[in-house]
Design a protein around this nucleic acid. Structure first.
Length: 564
DNA sequence: GAGTTTGAAACT
DNA sequence: CAGTTTCAAACTC
């Protein structure tokens, strides 16, 4: 990690400060791994509260705040109130260094509001992470990036100011330094961040976030703003205005981010504890917790409410644009149930015809509650229904399969048909006709726009009604079988025993079967049943496609036996 | 555009 | 987990 001095040399206008909570610094005996241990001048600290990472800007060192109670803090430059179960960073306090209580939450609170606040933490952020795209196309620009949302809360409440919303794009750095790995931390790079639309924050200083197994914060309620403005206290789940001075930036009613803003910019290295990240197969990770940055920020324009809004749940302008979204017309669901396509896609409603819509930035509390409910019911609720293949190749298949009964899966009622994919073995449809060469499929084939399953395979599958081959091209099967054969050949060449050869073949098979897209030849992430059908179908083609029939058969038999 | 059909989601 | 209800989109007229 670069030295603090080096970091400061490149720091021009912003800091992302990671601050560690006092409670954690007390409880943890782990030696902070620091960019800062030898860099006391770095005015950054890490807070790894229950809400996950917090990134704070901190004031210049003068006056030096009270630090003695945080001996292990990597950045001992931030005042905390130790007695509070929820420690909030204080605004730079002019010249006094006085500690002001900002938040206090009764440990036993269980109200709905408390639920929301706890939702602000890992739980919700993890939930949101699951709404992220997982297709290659959608990930094209963002894959591997971690995103941090600062979730606004309790909007439209007269007793509250608007909390800030900030998005940090973090890029994992792999492998982490050994010492960091020992601390259980993940090294990330802050690529850029967005706050509530007023400002674009670029951090260019190294930050550090401790890994900790300490109990997490139960919530994060504070207000941000100009120094010494009132803040709120949470009492038994209720947010009560307080006269305690603190921060309240008087953020605008809506946080707005222009899609044209540059979202990614390599800047800062962070150490993020793994338990504050919700890593999903989508490739996104979310850090939770409030973020705010007050110092050294690069101003960005404030966008009027009339401009398109970007929800914090949105991924990026790219993703937004990539989704051609139909406006919904929900009337009863408030667009907060999965009936609503916008909501189901993780979008906020925009230019929709919906009535009484809550799927917008003005109802984020309700929205996030709804997200949480959906995810409680089904953790996969927001995952794309269609596993996309590579661009220009086969479309993929439905994750859950359809359940059509009357449409024959040949109308847009059918999600498979609507997605222009054929039904697969996981569908529970009745009288399915979406495995035959429909006019649409023929059109696609003639246009050469898709790599449809081989007709021979397809014919073979027709008799089974279910069609696992809908996702598998001839090339996929060929490639797979050739690889299996290669394993068999190698085993033969090396004089391995039959058992060893089997093992090699099966390992190859498993690797290909389980890989999401092993080498660009198609969809591999199929169930055993599907693969069984594939290989059965392959037997029919063997004389045509494979010359080395004998050895192929050997490999194939191994796999078939494995599938049996 | 109103009414009907359909199937996913939500509910019981 | 199966049956029912609700919902919004697709479809028909």
């Amino acid at each position: 990690m670069e030295s603090c001095r080096e970091q400061e040399q490149c720091m021009t206008h912003s800091d992302v400060v990671v601050m560690m909570s006092p409670s954690q610094s007390h409880g943890s005996q782990a030696t902070p791994h620091p960019p800062s241990e030898s860099e006391p001048s770095c005015h950054h600290s890490v807070e790894n509260g229950g809400a996950g990472a917090r990134f704070h800007s901190v004031p210049p060192p003068d006056p030096q705040p009270i630090l003695s109670q945080f001996p292990s803090a990597p950045f001992a430059d931030f005042p905390f109130l130790q007695s509070s179960p929820f420690q909030f960073p204080l605004d730079p306090l002019p010249s006094t260094g006085t500690i002001y209580p900002i938040g206090n939450i009764d440990a036993s609170w269980t109200s709905e509001k408390a639920g929301h606040l706890s939702m602000m933490s890992e739980e919700l952020c993890g939930a949101i992470a699951s709404i992220t795209p997982d297709t290659e196309e959608e990930n094209s620009l963002e894959k591997g990036f971690l995103r941090q949302d600062l979730l606004p809360e309790l909007q439209n409440r007269t007793d509250l100011c608007q909390p800030p919303s900030m998005t940090l794009f973090l890029k994992p750095i792999d492998p982490p330094e050994e010492s960091m790995a020992m601390l259980g931390a993940t090294t990330c790079q802050v690529l850029g961040s967005i706050d509530n639309g007023q400002q674009m924050v670029h951090s260019e200083r190294p930050c550090y976030m401790r890994s900790s197994s300490e109990p997490r914060f139960q919530g994060d309620v504070t207000e941000f703003g100009t120094p010494f403005r009132k803040v709120n206290t949470i009492q038994m789940g209720k947010v009560v205005p307080s006269t305690v001075p603190g921060l309240c930036p008087m953020l605008p009613q809506s946080y707005l981010v222009s899609p044209s803003l540059p979202l990614i910019r390599p800047t800062t290295t962070l150490l993020v504890p793994p338990n504050s990240l919700s890593s999903l197969s989508s490739g996104y990770n979310f850090l939770s917790g409030p973020c705010f940055s007050q110092f050294h920020q690069t101003p960005c324009p404030v966008y009027p409410d009339s401009q398109p809004k970007m929800s914090p749940i949105r991924f990026s302008a790219t993703y937004w644009d990539a989704k051609s979204r139909k406006p919904c017309s929900c009337t009863k669901s408030q667009c907060l149930k999965l009936y609503c396509d916008c909501f189901a896609n993780g979008d906020i409603c925009s230019n929709c015809k919906c009535i009484n819509c809550y799927n917008n930035t003005e109802h984020e509390y309700e929205r996030y509650q709804a997200i949480k409910i959906c995810l409680d019911r089904n953790p996969e609720a927001f995952r794309p229904k269609i596993c996309n293949g590579k661009r220009g190749e086969i479309k993929g298949r439905h994750n859950k399969g359809c359940n059509c009964k009357r449409s024959g899966c040949l109308k847009n009622y059918c999600e498979c048909y609507e997605a222009k994919i054929m039904c697969s073995s996981i569908c529970k449809c009745v009288s399915c006709r979406n495995y035959d060469e429909s006019p649409e499929q023929q059109t696609l084939v003639s246009a050469g726009s898709v790599d449809l399953p081989d007709p021979v395979f397809y014919s073979a599958a027709k008799c089974q009604k279910k069609c696992p081959l809908a996702c598998i091209t001839l090339r996929v099967v060929e490639t797979t079988c050739v690889c299996l054969l290669a394993q068999a050949e190698e085993a033969e060449k090396e004089g391995y025993t039959e058992t060893q050869a089997e093992k090699m073949i099966l390992e190859e098979f498993d690797g290909r079967r389980l890989a999401p897209d092993y080498d660009g030849n198609g969809i591999y992430n199929l169930g055993l049943k599907d693969w069984y059908s594939v290989l059965k179908g392959f037997q029919r083609l063997k004389p045509v496609v494979v010359r080395k029939a004998r050895r192929m058969l050997k490999a194939e038999n191994v796999v078939m036996g494995y599938l049996e």
